[in-house]
């Protein structure tokens, strides 16, 4: 009984101390909420990377955080609105699919700050939604580096690219990759295929199969979500190379994933939240690239390229980050680098 009392007293004292410590902060910590699209958590890639950014906000800056996964596209708007209504200071939409929903909800809640990944609005649109930050990535800069690695690894002078849907953001991957290959060797063959879907590994595998077998490619880069998992499986089957995307995908096939083009969605969420919370913020788009460490190669432990190829890619990374070479953003511009 006595010891129980002592425990209670200690608990009470600790409780009071903690209480005092917390009341010492005058302003409550900002609250940050994010809404995922229907892909949701657990994709080992895009959405999980955004979640890492949210965790960093909680752990490093002490922000209150919450996330909501959407069941259907019709959930985007109510989910964004619910977070705003619950008093979250910053609300993120993860993925360009939410562009329309963010725009609508941002108009309804002018006192809440909103961020969106992979979308930028026009200046005219920002005038109506000065509380929104759009984050775009220079995927072409990171893709350029894996293009260099591919060109210095292939033995058949033929490399491949598998895109998901035929949309502008994926075109940036294609353009950067081609530029990286042709800046290294302008005569190399680059086979391009758009599978049309982001969620069909079977299709990814059959496309990559034909690239490896019929068309003699020996390195294939994918920017195709989980369709790309099929590309990696095909590389495993044929003993060839695949290049991963968005997050480090080496663990999927450690001996056949040459490297991965990392896209740091977490950097966007983390840095973007800080920008949104600065007083005087007005609506704009921020583009993150190699200079901001928001795109790039996978960590060294996941790199299977030769030391000389890696050195060459890192050399390019410095040149691009310094702005001495501008990587083409559109496939048509990259195609000009090819020489028959």
């Amino acid at each position: 009984m006595k010891s129980l009392n002592r425990v209670l007293v200690i608990l009470l004292a600790v409780g009071m101390l903690v209480g005092c410590a917390f009341s010492g902060f005058a302003a409550p910590a900002p609250k940050v909420g994010i809404v995922f699209d229907i892909g949701g958590l657990g994709d080992q890639s895009f959405n999980d990377s955004a979640y890492v950014g949210l965790q960093r906000l909680a752990n490093e800056l002490g922000h209150g955080t919450r996330y909501v996964e959407s069941n259907t596209p019709s959930d985007y708007e109510p989910n964004l609105a619910s977070l705003a209504r619950e008093g979250y200071d910053v609300v993120w939409g993860i993925g360009f699919l939410m562009a329309d929903a963010v725009q609508k909800v941002a108009k309804q809640f002018p006192n809440t700050k909103f961020g969106i990944i992979d979308h930028g609005y026009s200046e005219e649109e920002y005038r109506a939604i000065p509380n929104v930050l759009g984050i775009l990535y220079k995927e072409h800069e990171g893709s350029f580096l894996v293009g260099v690695l591919a060109a210095l690894t292939t033995q058949t002078n033929t490399v491949g690219f598998v895109g998901g849907m035929d949309i502008p953001v994926i075109h940036r991957f294609e353009a950067g990759y081609k530029a990286g290959v042709w800046k290294t060797n302008p005569k190399m063959n680059v086979i391009v295929n758009y599978s049309g879907v982001f969620d069909d590994p079977g299709k990814g595998k059959s496309v990559a199969d034909s690239m490896f077998r019929g068309r003699k490619a020996d390195v294939v880069f994918h920017a195709a979500g989980s369709t790309g998992i099929g590309v990696i499986r095909a590389a495993e089957d044929h003993g060839k190379w695949a290049i991963g995307v968005d997050s480090d995908q080496n663990h999927l096939a450690p001996n056949n994933v040459l490297n991965s083009m990392i896209k740091r969605v977490d950097v966007g969420v983390f840095e973007g939240t800080k920008m949104l919370l600065k007083p005087g913020f007005t609506g704009r788009t921020v583009v993150l690239g190699l200079r901001e460490n928001a795109v790039g190669l996978a960590p060294e432990k996941s790199n299977r390229a030769s030391a000389s190829a890696t050195a060459k890619a890192l050399e390019w990374a410095k040149i691009i980050a310094r702005g001495e070479y501008v990587v083409p953003e559109f496939p048509a511009d990259a195609d000009k680098l090819y020489k028959k």
Partner: peptide, 12 residues
């Protein structure tokens, strides 16, 4: 299911 995630951290 959306509101339970938001208000009570219950998976969707």
């Amino acid at each position: 299911s959306q509101m339970m995630q938001l208000l009570a951290r219950v998976p969707k």
